[in-house]
Design a protein around this nucleic acid. Structure first.
Lengths: 228, 228
DNA sequence: TAAAAAAGTTAGTTATGACTAACAAATTAA
DNA sequence: TTAATTTGTTAGTCATAACTAACTTTTTTA
């Protein structure tokens, strides 16, 4: 009920930091998210993050004690979710209307998500008829910042004989995304685990009559629904 | 034939300055465009423009002598035209697909024109089937930066009895754009000059069975084709 | 043509957001 | 439980791009 609308008085950098903290908090659930971890994630120095954290605390977006873990206020979360909404809507637009491929969208969406216009993003949403998921399978928050959390398990968590459906991929690496589409995997692909090799945890999978061996690292970035 | 592709290593500010110089040079044809004029146009101090001009000269986008007039190199013009292309394509998208009105598009397009992605803008162009003019009637440069210059005359340059067609409006002021659409004028409206009042140069016009009196200042910002 | 006005320049300051280097606190391991 | 390592903080620097104030050059006009 903080009615201070904070009409987007945030710089691009401030927005980037809030989004990064939000995403680290999701990834590691309730594990401590610290200053150095944030610096690593954003590829800046710990001194830079330390500085920005101070500013975001002063502005009421971040809470943390000295030497303690980082947390977001409701206001901070709200900013982050709005950024994620924008990012995912733009990715959807780029893929579905402008012929962008999975691996091409991220960098451009990273720029577009900082455009400040409520009307722009809500109209884009309407234009695409309110898509529920982005091209990588991630849920798109609605105009009120509401979104459902779909419990995701990684391909690497399954065992021999399991059958699953690809529901999302980690969009953090262009190389990975290229790789995924090059071997022919796509959203909704049905994947069967043929074998998990004890030696290096590599996994032999079958999908669409293709048989491939993927590494543990690869499987960690593929999110699935277990079917059988 | 400068093949140094200058892969958009320009900051948002540098781009803004180049575009501003380009537009001042068009508006006043071959008249001197100076430092203070640029500062006025961009609403910054003359010291700021002076500083930026130095940088842009060093980078090879601007040419000028000390205390002399500003000019753009081919490279500088090319950057400006690409920005104008982006601006006008985005305005077209916002109006034609996202329900934006004339007066709402400018600010958002001003942000969108700085997004760096060749593919994005060329695909947007294709998606809209290569529009030739933006919503204000201005010509959109093509992917090679080529564009035709349509000689524009202002409504204020006509005389009693003349008939003309509205082909473009100056998009510099939100208030003006709102005003234009509120009285019912739109692109292609046929306008007849009923009377030009000697006292204050106000003009009585008729269009679509509407009769209105507009000021000289208003008429200076309306561009037309003379029909009769 | 000399004084006034306008236009352009320079110097020095500020805020943002990076950085490195040095140091302090907390955690982990011996 | 002390030592080593990791994590976090502080101080000071740099680049960008804005600013004011002071000054110089150019142009205008009286």
């Amino acid at each position: 009920m903080t009615n201070k609308l904070n009409l987007n008085n945030l710089t691009k950098s401030e927005e980037d930091y809030l989004k990064a903290i939000f995403q680290l908090l999701i990834e590691d659930a309730s594990v401590k998210v610290g200053n150095n971890q944030l610096a690593d994630y954003l590829k800046v120095s710990p001194a830079s993050t330390n500085n920005m954290i101070k500013k975001l605390k002063a502005k009421g977006y971040v809470v943390s004690e000295k030497y303690g873990k980082l947390e977001l206020t409701e206001e901070g979360k709200s900013v982050a979710v709005r950024l994620i909404r924008k990012h995912r809507l733009w990715e959807t637009f780029l893929c579905n209307y402008l012929n962008f491929t999975w691996d091409e969208v991220h960098d451009v969406a990273e720029q577009l998500e900082h455009i400040k216009s409520r009307k722009l993003i809500d109209e884009l949403d309407r234009f695409m008829d309110f898509p529920k998921k982005d091209p990588h399978g991630e849920v798109i928050p609605n105009a009120n910042g509401e979104y459902s959390i779909i419990p995701k398990i990684t391909l690497s968590s399954l065992s021999e004989g399991d059958v699953c459906q690809l529901i999302a991929v980690n969009d953090g690496s262009v190389h990975f995304l290229k790789y995924v589409s090059e071997i022919g995997l796509a959203l909704s692909s049905e994947i069967k685990i043929l074998e998990v090799r004890e030696f290096d945890k590599s996994i032999r999978i079958k999908f669409d009559n293709t048989i491939e061996t993927v590494t543990r690292k690869f499987a960690d970035n593929v999110f699935v629904n277990k079917v059988v």
